[in-house]
Nucleic acid binder design. Structure first.
Lengths: 259, 259
DNA sequence: CGGGGATTTGACACATATCAAGAGCGGTGG
DNA sequence: CCACCGCTCTTGATATGTGTCAAATCCCCG
C-alpha cells in the first residue's frame, strides 16, 4: 500500500461520493478531511482550531473492516493510531491458557492503539463486531505533527489520561461490585455512549455476545444472561437477544453504587 | 542496596529557598540533579542522553512526606507530576458510599499524576504508607521542555502507555482469577518490583494492610489473610504479619495462570 | 503500660460458577 | 425456499468460593 500525499485532495465532492458509494470512496483514499469529518468533535483532533490545518495532515489512509476481521493482533508491530469512523469493536488480551479478557468495546469516535507505544508492539487484539471504517494515523508522523502543534499534543495526552481513568473505573467495577451492579453499569455506560453518538439512549442493539459481556465484567455468560432476565422480570428493561430497551432508567441507575 | 545510597542529602533548609528562575532554582533546590540521580534509569528522564541537560530543568522542588500524609487528594488541581525517590505509597479512588478502591502501590522510581491531565484535577488520592521523598515536576513546565526534547516526550508517552498496560493486567486479574491466583500474582509482582529496586526478591515487608491488598485485588481482607495462611501451610511462603518470605518461588508462580 | 487497630480463625450464608439440557436464531447449501 | 447445522442464549440443579459476622489474639504506638 502506497502511502503518498493524498490528503489535501479531500473535497466536499468526494464526501458526497462517499455517502452514495462507500466502496468507491474508499478506493479514493480520504474522502473526508478531519476538519470536515462529522466525528470531529469527539475524535482525536478535537480541540484544535478549524484554522489549524495540521489535523488534516494526520490521516493517510482509511480501512474498511468487516465483522470478525481483526484490525490488529497482540504482538503486531505498532505503527498506527486508529480512529474509528463507524462500526463496533472489542479489544481483548488472551492468556496462554486460552482464556481471553475483553478490555473495551470501542466504537465510532474512539481512538485506539495507544497501548502500543511502550513496546512498539500492540499488547491487545482488536476485532470488529460489526462492519466499520477506521482512519489510520501513522504514529511516527503523528508525533512529528504533534511537536509543531501543542494543542494536538495536549489532546493526545488528554486521551491517554482518559483511558487511564476509564480503566480505573473498570477496576473499581470489577473489584467491588456484584453482578447486578456490574451489568447495570455496563448497560448505562453503553446507553450513554450511544446517546453521545446521536443514537437512542433507551433502545439499542448489543453487538457483543453474552460471553464478551461476561469477560468484560468478570462474570460468566450464564450469570449475565440471568441478570438480564431478572432485570426484565422486574421491569427494568426489555431484553430480547441482542436487543435492549431500557424501561426504567432511574431504577437501573439505583443499582449502580455511584460514579 | 542502591536505594540506601541514593537517599536524601536533601535538607529541609534547602526547601525554604524558592523558585526564581528555572536554572537557578533547579541548582539551588535539588541536591541531586536528575542526571546524577541513582534512580535515573527507572525514572522519568530515562532514555535521555546524559548530555541532554533538559532533564535537569524539570524538578523545581522536592517534598518529604510522612506516613499517613496525602501527597494529593482526588479533586485537587493538577499541577505537578510526582517522581518518587523513596517511600511507599498507595493510590485509591473512593466512592460516595465510603468504599475505596486501591488502584496502585507506587514506590521509588515510579512517576505519578498523569491521571490528572484530562480534567486538570486529580482523580485519585495518593497517600504515603511509609515516609518518603518525592520530586515535584511542574506539568506546564514539563510540557514546555518536552516540546524541545522529543526523547523526553517519548519517554512520557511510554510511561502513560505502560500505565495503561498495567491496568489491563489488573483488569485481567480482577476479571478472571480466583483468590489464590490473585494473591500469588500480587506477591510475585511485588517481589519483582523490589528486586528491580535492588531489594531482595525473596524476603520483604509489606507496607500495606490486608484491607489495602484486598481492595486492590477485589477481595475481602479475611480472604487475603486466609490465602496467606494457606500459602504458609503449603510451604510456599513464610508470612508473619507484614513480613513475607517466599520459600517456593516456582510453586507460587505455578498458581499464576499467565505467562 | 494501656488501648486501638490489625490479623487470624471459625461458622455460616449467599452469590456466582459449574455442569447440563434444550430452545431459538441465523447463516449455508441443497 | 426449505432444511440443516452451529452458535448463542436461556434456564435449572448443584457445587463451591468468597463474603459476612463474630471473637480472640497480637502488635504497634502513644
Amino acid at each position: 500500500m502506497a502511502i503518498a500525499a493524498m490528503v489535501q485532495n479531500a473535497s466536499p465532492v468526494r464526501k458526497a461520493l462517499y455517502v452514495r458509494s462507500v466502496r468507491e470512496a474508499t478506493v479514493a483514499q480520504c474522502p473526508t478531511a478531519c476538519s470536515s469529518c462529522t466525528l470531529h468533535s469527539t475524535c482525536l483532533p478535537c480541540g484544535l482550531q478549524q484554522t489549524d490545518d495540521s489535523m488534516d495532515e494526520l490521516v493517510y489512509s482509511r480501512r474498511r473492516i468487516h465483522r470478525g476481521e481483526h484490525l490488529y493482533r497482540a504482538g503486531d508491530p505498532f505503527k498506527f493510531l486508529y480512529a474509528f469512523r463507524s462500526g463496533f469493536f472489542k479489544t481483548y488480551i488472551d492468556t496462554p491458557e486460552g482464556q481471553t479478557q475483553v478490555t473495551a468495546f470501542p466504537m465510532a469516535g474512539d481512538v485506539l492503539g495507544l497501548d502500543g507505544i511502550e513496546t512498539d508492539k500492540h499488547r491487545v487484539s482488536t476485532v470488529a463486531l460489526e462492519d466499520g471504517e477506521v482512519c489510520m494515523i501513522p504514529f511516527a508522523h503523528f508525533q512529528a505533527v504533534a511537536l509543531r502543534s501543542p494543542a494536538l499534543l495536549h489532546q493526545m495526552h488528554r486521551m491517554m489520561s482518559r483511558e487511564i481513568m476509564r480503566e480505573h473505573s473498570v477496576m473499581a467495577l470489577l473489584g467491588g461490585m456484584r453482578a447486578e451492579s456490574r451489568v447495570a453499569t455496563f448497560l448505562l455506560a453503553l446507553s450513554e455512549k450511544f446517546a453521545g453518538r446521536g443514537y437512542s439512549a433507551m433502545q439499542f442493539n448489543l453487538r457483543m455476545t453474552r460471553e464478551d459481556i461476561g469477560s468484560y465484567l468478570g462474570l460468566k455468560l450464564e450469570t449475565v444472561s440471568r441478570v438480564l432476565s431478572r432485570f426484565q422480570a422486574t421491569n427494568l428493561i426489555k431484553a430480547n437477544l441482542r436487543s435492549i430497551e431500557i424501561v426504567d432508567m432511574t431504577g437501573l441507575k439505583s443499582l449502580v453504587p455511584e460514579l
